[in-house]
């Protein structure tokens, strides 16, 4: 009984330091870690695909004006599933490895992006040239119809 306690004490002495020096020294997450989302304003064209698949409803799309679409990313409730990154045709949304996201203000957990949309001359709907369909065709996607083109 006593011997086993002594042995335990010896093991503890032999173990040395086990505690991470974390807040004092930085610690990178493992590769592939999914952290806070990041949006590239240069690439996003406002298709709303990410908003469609997001299980937590992080991404809210609002057509604020005829040519302006506002995307709001309320990432406080993001579940870091990575679906938005998977479906984004432009690679505009990305999950970074940033995990140090603690904050004292809820406003810090919102990303607002105003996307400028070009309107179609015929129907008035917005698209950026070239159209998403043309881009997908150029990228080698095969789709059913020819989208009204020859």
């Amino acid at each position: 009984m006593l011997l086993s306690k002594l042995r335990e004490a010896l093991i503890c002495f032999g173990a040395g330091r086990v505690t991470l020096p974390y807040p004092a020294a930085p610690r990178e997450p493992a590769p592939g870690f999914r952290g806070k989302i990041q949006v590239d304003a240069d690439l996003c064209f406002g298709c709303g695909g990410c908003a469609h698949v997001c299980p937590a409803g992080v991404i809210q799309v609002e057509d604020a004006a005829q040519l302006t679409r506002v995307l709001e990313f309320h990432w406080s409730r993001c579940t870091y599933c990575g679906r938005c990154e998977e479906v984004c045709p432009e690679g505009a949304i990305r999950l970074t490895s940033q995990f140090e996201t603690a904050t004292d203000r809820p406003q810090d957990m919102v990303i607002r992006l105003e996307v400028f949309m070009g309107p179609c001359q015929r129907c008035g709907r917005c698209f950026p040239p070239p159209t998403p369909l043309e881009r997908m065709t150029a990228a080698g996607f095969r789709h059913g119809g020819d989208g009204g083109r020859a």
Binding site: Y22, P29, Q107, D108, R112
Partner: peptide
């Protein structure tokens, strides 16, 4: 580590690393 960061933030040991973004 993220929870530790939150604790350290509350104790004033580290700086906040996120902010709202308007793009």
């Amino acid at each position: 580590e993220a929870i530790l960061h939150g604790v350290a933030l509350a104790l004033g040991l580290v700086e906040k690393k996120v902010a709202g973004e308007a793009l």
